[in-house]
Design a protein around this nucleic acid. Structure first.
Lengths: 337, 337
DNA sequence: AAATTCACCGAGAACGTTACCGATTCATTA
DNA sequence: TAATGAATCGGTAACGTTCTCGGTGAATTT
């Protein structure tokens, strides 16, 4: 059977003092003498005392728990963001409860609905790609629980942290242009996601700036997997007027593109340029290696969590939107020579 | 300010009945009429009632929280295991608190020591590779909190779930042998980790079975990163008697080996065979593609969590050790022709 | 010497929920 | 008719902690 942990009552009884004094000694040095404080602390370690967060949570109406909700953890980007979150949470003594939605809107909703909000101090979320209504998030915010969005944000007034999707896409496209590619296609993300639009706009504006042709058939929307990238390329290659370069919304799809091109014995880089987005480690491994826009995933995680902690501390913290810059990484897949 | 959630008191007051009745109506149908139960349930949804787990946890001395402690989340194996854990936890309405140790023994210890055990129903852990003492885990088990180890297990009598490291290594090595490689080296994991030993033994026994040479200089211990793999290959290639094949303890190091070999213009497969362990998606992407032993990561996660839940349910559950088989996946890196 | 301040401590209520025990009603049985 | 039993409900204590308030005794001031 589960053993009973030592409580502050036990400490009080052992020292023949009151629980209030023990309680005060254990956290602040307020209204307690140095001697008793020392006594209490020693007895606490001796009895192997561990604070009961259920009890503190009950009276203070706050625990040290943060919830993180994201579509998946099995990819470079999200796992790195999470590591960043974890890093600042750990250093501030917060616990993280992680929920994975599998990019499924129904599951996301279910998780939100069953969330034990009374034992949560804040929420960090990246929404699922199947765009639904966001009222369930709004309700939580209305309840007074701080929420910070990252990467995939919802249209709600609260703090958000993301990479510079527009400029990253612009830079990627411009890089292809400056390397002599003339017919640039874009393999985009699912519609309805904010950064899908941002990256699409960056791509379009870069084409416009350099008077390059914009063709609707060269813009394909689909999921994030490598398989989606392969399928999209097959679609493009059924066209009469094929593109000579592809800007992919992420690296995994770009890998799919490269794989499909290699199957067709098309020389990636020389014949068809490819550039991705993320800087997934895979992009350096594949050959030819994949040019990409490096996302500051770890920093996004850290920044989101820092922001959330500020929200928690100050009741009326003004929402902030933080946009972190990406970085163009040039490898073999986008170089003609 | 944070809004006050509706409590069972509010429900009781609104319906002019007692809190005890509301409490009973809310969970079991025991000692409460169908009518009042219906009334309570309706009022609960109307008031948007959410149970306060701090309160229930306090009196029942149990929450629905599981802790998962693992070295890193930014790699295929652990993130997939976690997804498996999450899957069964979600379907049983358990929350997962995730801690990442960064493979740092000191941090692991710190996390364990500061664990809020009073609000935890069980623990799932994969230990850090810097072998230390395991008494901190033993203490937790002695306290009556169920612990299940997975993958990297500690020498403690409790339930464990892992892949068949010995036979996987044996099979991988035998595969290299049957493909005509004569001088097989092993790039092993950090010493002191259980599966490092298991895979090493599988490798050695396969060599013995086929009367192949065993050379101490062909066995290198180091970390799990790609860089470690590259370094280890450089070391091997400084030897007078170089191996003609390499069995790597995991795929990331095997990738490092392939990268280093390609840098030396050595044809992987034809000249030097390489095989890994894990079946990281990267192994299919790299060229030449990497042969490997596929680990049942997702199943390991699911099984571990199921086992933990059984421990939690039955107070005196007998510890089980579950070993799931791997699967040889043959790709280009281990084929001579 | 009396009054005031200060440092320290204890008693008790509260947080939201469940468990235990007793009370009430109503129908059933001897 | 009285006693028994079942079904349903309420009161109260408890879980471990914090918070507010009031109460000591000693030190300081007037």
């Amino acid at each position: 059977m589960r053993r009973h942990y030592a409580t502050i009552k036990d400490i009080a009884h052992a020292l023949n003092i009151s629980v209030s004094t023990v309680s005060r000694a254990l956290r602040d040095t307020y209204d307690v003498s140095a001697d008793t404080r020392k006594m209490v602390l020693e007895m606490a370690t001796q009895l192997n005392y561990k604070p009961n967060f259920n009890a503190t949570g009950l009276v203070k109406n706050s625990t040290h728990n943060l919830a993180v909700i994201l579509p998946a953890i099995t990819n470079y980007y999200f796992s790195t963001v999470f590591t960043g979150i974890q890093e600042v949470a750990y250093s501030h003594n917060y616990n993280i409860i992680l929920y994975v939605t599998n990019d499924d809107a129904a599951r996301e909703l279910n998780i939100i609905r069953n969330l034990s909000l009374s034992s949560l101090d804040g929420l960090l979320v990246s929404v699922s790609s199947q765009a639904g209504s966001c009222e369930h998030f709004q309700e939580i915010i209305d309840d007074g629980i701080p929420v910070v969005f990252f990467d995939r944000v919802a249209d709600i007034t609260t703090s958000k942290v993301m990479q510079d999707d527009y400029n990253g896409a612009f830079e990627a496209t411009e890089h292809l242009i400056s390397n002599g590619y003339k017919k640039i296609a874009h393999i985009a993300g699912p519609e309805g996601l904010t950064f899908t639009t941002s990256r699409l706009n960056g791509y379009l504006d870069a084409l416009r700036k350099h008077n390059m042709p914009i063709r609707k058939k060269w813009i394909l929307h689909s999921g994030f997997s490598q398989e989606c990238g392969e399928n999209d390329l097959e679609k493009l290659w059924k066209l009469n007027d094929k593109p000579d370069a592809i800007f992919s919304v992420n690296d995994r799809k770009a890998v799919g593109v490269i794989v499909a091109l290699k199957r067709k014995n098309i020389v990636v880089g020389k014949e068809v340029g490819v550039i991705g987005f993320t800087n997934d480690p895979m992009s350096a491994i594949i050959s030819p290696s994949l040019s990409t826009i490096a996302e500051p995933a770890f920093e996004i995680g850290k920044k989101s969590c820092q922001l959330l902690l500020q929200h928690i501390k100050k009741k009326n913290f003004i929402p902030e939107e933080i946009i972190l810059p990406g970085k163009l990484i040039i490898r073999e897949s986008s170089i003609r020579s």
